[in-house]
Write a protein that binds this DNA or RNA. Structure first.
Lengths: 228, 228
DNA sequence: TGTACATCAGTGAACGCGCGTTCACTGATGTAC
DNA sequence: TGTACATCAGTGAACGCGCGTTCACTGATGTAC
């Protein structure tokens, strides 16, 4: 269980900040292809968030500069920066939950392997998209009024984890028998633990953190073994 | 292990936003008591952060309005808003670590009770100061260059937790024998778990979270029992 | 085949706002003579 | 005891900046006749 020297190597390198589009301005889309700009805007906003990790740094004019377009052109596709931010988050959350499911499936049918796979997928997403992760899970005192559609499947992921824990423990599961409260609780512990590991490493990269993969595996193991 | 209906009651109510000082402007301090303004500024900034939970919402002019003073007067005591913010954080971090130690001491000498006490103290601080907590632990991609002095004793708190875990497990401890890596790891799990529980509740107050105190006690119990 | 016109995909100037920061200034109060 | 002066504790106007937002405008392109 070796600790990395100063924990510094655990901080993922963010994408570099984006320069404004150099010189040549973007040429207008062809007729009927106006939505191309919409995609470019979302892309630019996503990269800006990836680079800064700060939703407050996302400005309408800034995005317009990156895309190489007049500030007013943003309004052709989004009512406000908040709506644009919601779109970015929505996209990333969908990728996130898909990645978690893929990572679980990579673990095959063994529930313990699925559980560990999902946890590793969680960490892998953070390593690949630290800025987006920071924005997706930024703790606000007053959460945005704009409720995002579908609650992002976070609840589904929690339930999937609880079911895998229950299976590891040999609980009989079917439509009438949901995972036990203990198994569900371990699902919450896992999510809280993972989120805590990652966000604390972002806040204090210089504390002597344990190796991240070791810590993840250790938590999963302890949670699994705590119920048998 | 009852879940609260929609988890909503787990979100602490933040302090209300601060109005600018009404009408009457602040009267200058007497001679030799210029530092009174410094305290008032820190106090106003703290309350602003408590109300918003967002470091980005703290502005020089905003603080000046609350105190009832010209914007330029802030410069009499602080070089920049960042320095002011650092001061606020420093104060709160010192309160935080003192509160954790007090909460541990309230548990007496039994290491398991101390551990649970410390965990409860952590949660209590969050309930009392959610906005400050959000700012103190806001995950930034590029952490502020201004390293805060003394690293805030977070490391000390981690070591104290590891020692209590080790004691619960019956490990012999003295100057030559630090807690085992397993005990240290459980300290990290506890911190990550607590931080995760709290910040995820702030991000998604409407998910059906378990009762917080139950979840905390359950985590402590599982971590303790995972090593015996 | 030509041409008028509607539509699409944007642009550019201008606005008012709040911000951090500067600079010279003010008014009360203690103190040296 | 009076008075000049230094010092303390601030003030107020002004600056340039980036921001969101508005409004009227433009230039290319497809289409109806």
């Amino acid at each position: 269980m070796p600790a990395s020297p100063e924990g510094v190597d655990e901080a993922p390198t963010p994408a570099p900040a984006l320069p404004p589009r150099a010189g040549a301005r973007r040429r207008p889309a062809r007729r009927g292809e106006g939505s191309a700009l919409r995609e470019e805007i979302i892309d630019a906003a996503t990269r800006e968030i990836a680079a800064t990790g700060d939703a407050g740094a996302l400005t309408l004019r800034g995005v317009a500069r990156i895309v190489g377009v007049a500030a007013t052109s943003i309004y052709l596709h989004f009512d406000s920066v908040e709506k644009l931010l919601d779109e970015v988050k929505l996209t990333r959350f969908e990728q996130f939950s898909a990645a978690l499911n893929d990572a679980a499936d990579a673990g095959g049918t063994d529930p313990a392997a699925r559980l560990l796979g999902r946890a590793r997928g969680y960490v892998a997403f953070w390593r690949d998209h630290p800025g987006e992760y920071a924005v997706m899970f930024a703790a606000r005192l007053h959460p945005a009024a704009t409720a995002l559609p579908r609650a992002f499947r976070l609840k589904d992921a929690l339930e999937a984890v609880a079911e895998d824990v229950a299976r590891v423990w040999g609980e009989p599961l079917d439509a009438d028998r949901p995972p036990s409260p203990e198994a569900s609780m371990c699902g919450f512990h896992l999510w809280a633990g993972l989120h805590g590991m990652l966000s604390l490493r972002m806040v204090r990269p210089h504390l002597p953190w344990p190796d991240l993969d070791t810590e993840v595996a250790d938590l999963v193991e302890r949670l699994i073994s705590s119920g048998r």
